[in-house]
Every structure is written in C-alpha cells, then in structure tokens.
C-alpha cells in the first residue's frame, strides 16, 4: 500500500533540507501548522460558533455586533479574556495549579499528531497511531486532576473526581469499540484505517458507497459517539463541569489566561474526539468533489455541532446513573460488539 508522505517530510523536501536538520525543521514547522489550524478552529468554535448555535436552538439572535456575523467577537473576546486579572486564590498548590492549564490543551493537540487530515496533512503515521491518539487524549485527565487537587476548592475537587470516574468508565468502552474497527482494518496505523475505508461497499444507481465503518457497523458508530460524548464531557454527560451543581467543576478557580487555556483545551478535545470518530468511522478525509481537508473539517465540525445540539436538548445525568450506564451498559455492549465483529471477520476471512 503506497502511503502518502507525512507533512514534515513534505516540508523538509520543499525546503531542500535533509537528514536530522530536515527532520527537526520539518517536524517543528509541521507541528506549528497543525496546531495553529486546530487553534483557529477552536477560536471560531468557542467564542463565536458555540454562541451562534446555542442561540439558534434557543430562538435568539446572539453575537452580531462586531464584524460580519459578529465574527470579530473572537478578537474582542480574546483581548477581553487575556487582559483580565489572573486571580490566584489562597492556598493553591502553585506548580500544579499553573501546570494544569497547559497540560489540558497540549494533550489534546498532541493527539492531532497522528490524525490524517487529508491533502497530506499528517504529522506522523506510526504503526500504533490509534493507540497514540487515545493515550495522548487521556493525558487531559491528568490535567483535570491537577486542577481539582491544586485549586484548594471543594467544588473543583468534586469536579476532578467526577472527571476521573467518567474517564475510567467511558475510556474502556471507547477503546474497545475502536478495537472492533481495528479488527476490520487489520491495523492500528491511521492511514491504513482510512485507506481500508476507501474501498467500495456497494453501488446503488451509479453512486458508490464506500466501506466507511459507520455504514459497515452503525451500532459500533453509535456506541463510539456516545462514549466520545462522555469522554469530552458534554451533555448528557456534562458531569465534571455540571454548572448548576458544582459551579464550574474543576475549573471553578481559574480566570484570565488560565481559563482561556482550559477552555481551549476542552474545545480542542471535542475536535479531537470528532477527528478520531471521523478517522475510524467516516473515512477520515475522504469525500467526493471537495478536497480531503475540507471534508475532514466538515466532519469534525459536524461532531462539534452534535455536542452543542445535545447540550441544548438533553438533560444531564446524575453522577451515579452516569457511571452505571458506563459500567453496566456501555462496557457490556462494547465487548459484545467486539466479540461479534471478531466472529464475523473471522468467518468472512
């Protein structure tokens, strides 16, 4: 299978650099580009798109004063948030409290290193790509525990504990469901998972439907999306933040730049969740007519839209019900799915 060259190689090739220097320069420039693509998307999502979407669901108008469609709100919001005073409460555990807001967004960004975004935009394509993506995304939990522990606030502590409980309960179904895809694809390498999905499943009236795993195994897709919602902490699994119950959960004490970083981290996390779902189930950057990267963007934004939709329409579960669904429902279903998939694949092969 001929794989496309990864982004750092392309860059070093364009710059005419070779060897270690080429690897380093290409890697850094590539990482810079990918990170900024994601940060720009988050900038659109956080201060602007989220408000617009929520307003549409609530029959409101929402931001429209500054710039066309209120888009320049992004700039003013950034200035506003960055110029606020950073309030450091008494008794916080300083190194951890300062470090946590960096851990959360960076872990999510790290996950994008292995995501194929189309048009050759992929930083690295290791054999264990999928495992890397999950591992990197899970580092965020560490950051959340740090915020909760270091903030010296009981609401933060409860929020962090909830986040950990949620992560453990839903990470397993998430990974197990992803494993059923790996059985189909026969590889953990992201580019291969995407490539497998490009083959045609069936042809109806001249329209070829590719073997996207969402079509092959819609049940696994549904499981994955639900577990993913819990993983990114969105309604109905909005447990770690739960604004009406525990104020703002683990981020209660954060303000100014630190708040921005945590907020960014959450949104990048949603996009990462969308990106993994798109790669595993929706053929990654594949799609007709438009270039791959555009399709990739559409897919991750669709997931973002879905989280916002759920936020407007679905109530939050209670923490014990949430864990019950995770351990007694999702875990069982995901294993059932894995076993069934394994049998089917075994029989066909």
């Amino acid at each position: 299978m001929s794989l496309q060259a990864v982004l750092p190689d392309t860059i070093s090739g364009l710059l005419g650099l070779e060897g270690v220097l080429g690897d380093v320069v290409g890697g850094l420039v590539g990482a810079f580009l990918v990170a900024n693509i994601m940060l720009i998307m988050t900038a659109f999502a956080g201060p602007w798109a989220k408000r617009k979407i929520t307003a549409a669901f609530g029959d409101r108008i929402a931001v429209n004063r500054i710039g066309p469609f209120g888009l320049l709100t992004i700039v003013t919001d950034a200035v506003r948030l960055l110029s606020k005073e950073l309030i450091v409460p008494e008794g916080v555990d300083r190194p951890a409290w300062d470090l946590a807001p960096m851990v959360i967004p960076f872990s999510a960004l790290l996950g994008f290193a292995v995501i194929p975004m189309g048009n050759g935009i992929q930083l690295a394509d290791p054999e264990t790509g999928l495992a890397f993506a999950f591992a990197a995304a899970s580092i965020a939990s560490l950051g959340i525990v740090m915020t909760g522990y270091a903030s010296n606030n009981k609401f933060s502590l409860i929020g962090a504990l909830r986040a950990v409980a949620a992560n453990i309960a839903y990470e397993i179904p998430l990974v197990i469901t992803a494993a059923s895809v790996v059985i189909f694809a026969g590889s953990l390498r992201m580019s291969e998972i995407v490539a497998v999905q490009a083959e045609p499943l069936l042809s109806v009236a001249g329209v070829t439907i590719p073997t996207w795993f969402a079509f092959v195994n819609p049940f696994a897709f549904a499981l994955f999306v639900i577990a993913n919602l819990a993983e990114v902490g969105r309604n109905p699994f909005d447990i770690p933040e739960a604004p009406t119950e525990i104020v703002a959960g683990y981020q209660t004490e954060y303000s100014s730049v630190y708040f921005v970083l945590i907020y960014l981290g959450e949104f990048i996390h949603i996009f990462l969740g969308g990106a993994i779902a798109a790669t595993l189930f929706l053929g990654g950057p594949a799609g007709p007519v438009l270039p791959g990267f555009v399709w990739f963007t559409i897919k991750i934004w669709a997931f973002f839209l879905f989280t916002q939709w759920a936020r407007s329409a679905v109530p939050r579960l209670r923490v014990d019900q949430f864990l019950e669904i995770g351990w007694k429902g999702m875990l069982v279903l995901s294993f059932a799915n894995l076993v069934l998939t394994a049998i089917i694949v075994g029989v066909i092969a």
């Binding site: 409101r60 108008i61 939709w309 679905v314």
Partner: peptide, 17 residues
C-alpha cells in the same frame, strides 16, 4: 426533544430583538 430543538434551530425565527 432533539427534534423539537432542531425544528426551532432551523425555522430561523427569533423572539429576541
């Protein structure tokens, strides 16, 4: 519930001024 909210989102009507 999701259908109701989607209906409201798509009809483009707002009640705020």
């Amino acid at each position: 519930g999701m259908a109701v909210t989607l209906k409201h989102a798509l009809d483009g009507q707002t009640f705020t001024v």
